[in-house]
């Protein structure tokens, strides 16, 4: 391993450790179970009930699985808020003083959202599976996990791009994250099979993370993944994720440069 790669991993690891300490202060195991997990299970059941409303068991199952899986990508959006909080507390400017690339610093500080998202999504899938009798097999877990890692990381890249924008336009943070939540729930085939629809719309929708990879993870949950489609879907998801990572780089570096130039980096909002 080269020195550069080693130092990159070190930054990521230390950023993760320090941010995990922050996260631990946020929750105790009781408040995590009663506050966070209970809410997520209820959220999945809520949308599953929506499927039941139309009268078919298939719809209910479809919505339950989709909503449990999308929890990890949705969780990643938390990084937008935590980056804004760093700015408010004045720690962001200190972090950006380091010689490391600002994107790497921010990626490392928010990485715990990825772990949190993966954990909550898989636990919720287990709980909901037990409650609604989804029959998820233990043997499917490794594939589900791999698929979820890809979906979550590609969404994390998009969330980081939005974090970059919110450094420059902090007042737009809530607006952006709320909109992304709706887009992920309505535009990626979480509640209902994404219709082919108008090609004018379908192209931009395919640029949203989750949309390309979700069918692969659904197949893993159902225990019927075929190798080629599985890898194709996740491969596409990876490409979309890399595209968003490039966007994140431009957004973060551009915003930091702009803030330094205008002297607004220290302005808490």
């Amino acid at each position: 391993m080269t020195d550069k790669a080693r130092s990159l991993f070190q930054v990521l690891w230390l950023g993760l450790l320090s941010s995990f300490e922050d996260y631990r202060r946020l929750f105790t195991w009781k408040s995590w179970l009663l506050g966070w997990l209970l809410r997520l299970v209820a959220q999945v059941l809520f949308f599953a009930m929506l499927g039941r409303l139309t009268g078919t068991v298939a719809d209910e199952r479809y919505a339950a699985v989709g909503n449990a899986l999308v929890l990890a990508p949705l969780g990643c959006l938390g990084v937008v808020a935590s980056t804004s909080l760093e700015r408010r507390l004045g720690t962001l400017q200190l972090l950006l003083l380091s010689p490391t690339d600002p994107l790497v610093v921010l990626l490392s500080r928010g990485l715990y959202w990825v772990f949190d998202g993966l954990l909550t999504s898989l636990v919720t899938l287990g709980v909901v599976s037990a409650l609604l009798g989804l029959g998820v097999q233990h043997g499917a877990l490794p594939l589900i996990f791999c698929g979820q890692v890809v979906l979550t990381l590609s969404t994390y890249a998009m969330a980081m791009a939005v974090s970059g924008l919110s450094i420059r336009w902090p007042e737009a943070r809530t607006f952006l994250t709320s909109t992304l939540t709706i887009v992920l729930l309505a535009g990626t085939g979480v509640n209902t099979a994404a219709p082919a629809g108008n090609p004018v719309w379908s192209v931009p929708l395919h640029l949203i993370p989750v949309r390309n990879g979700l069918p692969a993870v659904r197949a893993a949950v159902a225990g019927t993944p075929s190798t080629v489609p599985f890898l194709t879907h996740l491969g596409l998801e990876c490409l979309i994720g890399l595209g968003w990572l490039a966007m994140a780089h431009f957004a973060v570096v551009g915003s930091v440069r702009h803030q330094v130039r205008t002297g607004r980096l220290t302005t808490a909002t």
Partner: peptide, 15 residues
């Protein structure tokens, strides 16, 4: 710690 329990006031209450 009430703040962390706030999340439980949304979807569970909607159900």
């Amino acid at each position: 710690g009430a703040r962390t329990l706030q999340n439980a006031l949304t979807y569970p209450f909607y159900l």
